[in-house]
Amino acid sequence: MNAAATIPGKKKRPAIAIAVPYWVREFALIRWGVAALAGGVAVGVAAVLYSNAQLRDASATRAHVQQVRDAAYARYAYADNEKREIRAFQPPFLAMRERGLVGEENRLAWLDAIRRIQEDRRLLPISYEVTPQQTVAPDPRVATGDYQLHASRMTLHMDMLDELELFNFLEDLRARGYFAVQDCAIKRLGAGGPPDAPALSADCTLNWITLTAATTTAAPAPARGKP
């Protein structure tokens, strides 16, 4: 019996033809072009991503270099400003140090100045007493930098022939140091003495001023005497 025989009473179905789009049928012709295009796109995307990364790195480097440059310029400007300030303030600073305002307190120089003025002016004997040095709080608007303001109080007594002797004495003393006159009391002595006897006496309180480094704390002992 033939296996391929047709079963009686059953009709054979016709084959169904499926229509394939032309671009699918012809894809084989362009598949290498598509592959090349995909590769080019991938390379382009990678190049864009790499370029963006490089741009970010370059921006970060540029910002860092800008910060370094700004810091260097700020240091240069600060140093240049310091040099200008030194040139401007060095002469008066040296002058103040020469006169004893800046540095350690030099009481011997004060006492020597009193003695010399008394001898040059031919004044009557002068007596004095200096109390221990004290720290002074300056006005907040006064900038003293790394220096601390100190003052030593001197009580001074002198007999005079006239008031001009006191004024000349203080003027000469001011040329040799920095001090502030706190008060001065002049008293007239009794008349009837010899011609060269003192007619007046003065009791003054002076505050000798010095600027010393803020770490300096030592204070000289009290001094009294008569040149």
Rank of each mutant, 00 (worst) to 15 (best):
G193M: 04
T217M: 06
I126G: 04
T210G: 04
V48S: 12
A63I: 06
T155D: 11
P194I: 06
R97Q: 13
P125E: 02
K226D: 10
A35Y: 04
A74C: 07
T131V: 07
I209L: 15
P140L: 05
D120A: 13
R122E: 15
E82S: 10
C184F: 08
A19Y: 11
D70L: 13
A36E: 04
I117K: 02
D112R: 11
I16C: 12
S127Q: 10
N52C: 03
H64R: 09
R97H: 08
R99F: 06
R99M: 11
L206F: 04
A202S: 10
P140Q: 03
C204M: 09
W32I: 11
G103S: 08
Q148F: 02
S152Q: 04
A60W: 02
Q148G: 09
T210H: 03
G100F: 00
Q133M: 13
V130P: 00
N207C: 04
R224F: 11
A60Q: 10
R107W: 14
W23I: 07
L49F: 10
L149S: 01
P14T: 13
A185M: 09
R25A: 11
F179A: 00
K226N: 14
D120L: 11
Q66I: 01
P227G: 06
D172N: 07
L94S: 12
H64E: 12
R31M: 12
Y22W: 09
I117T: 05
A218N: 07
Q182E: 15
L29Y: 08
T210I: 04
R107F: 10
H64L: 11
S59E: 15
K10T: 07
W208E: 01
P92F: 03
D139P: 00
A3K: 10
A58P: 02
H150Y: 09
Q134C: 07
G190H: 04
R97S: 10
N81W: 05
L170A: 04
A180R: 13
L29R: 14
V68A: 13
P194G: 12
P195M: 03
D203W: 02
M96R: 01
K226A: 14
P21Q: 04
R115H: 12
N81Y: 03
C184K: 07
R75P: 06
V102R: 02
R69K: 14
Y73M: 15
T135E: 09
E129A: 14
L161Q: 12
T215C: 01
A213L: 11
K11M: 05
A5Q: 09
V48H: 09
T217E: 06
M1I: 08
Q54D: 11
A36K: 03
A221H: 06
A223H: 11
H150G: 02
V41D: 02
S59W: 10
D139W: 01
H150Q: 08
E171W: 08
M96C: 06
V43I: 13
R121C: 07
A5W: 06
Y147F: 09
Q90H: 08
Q148Y: 01
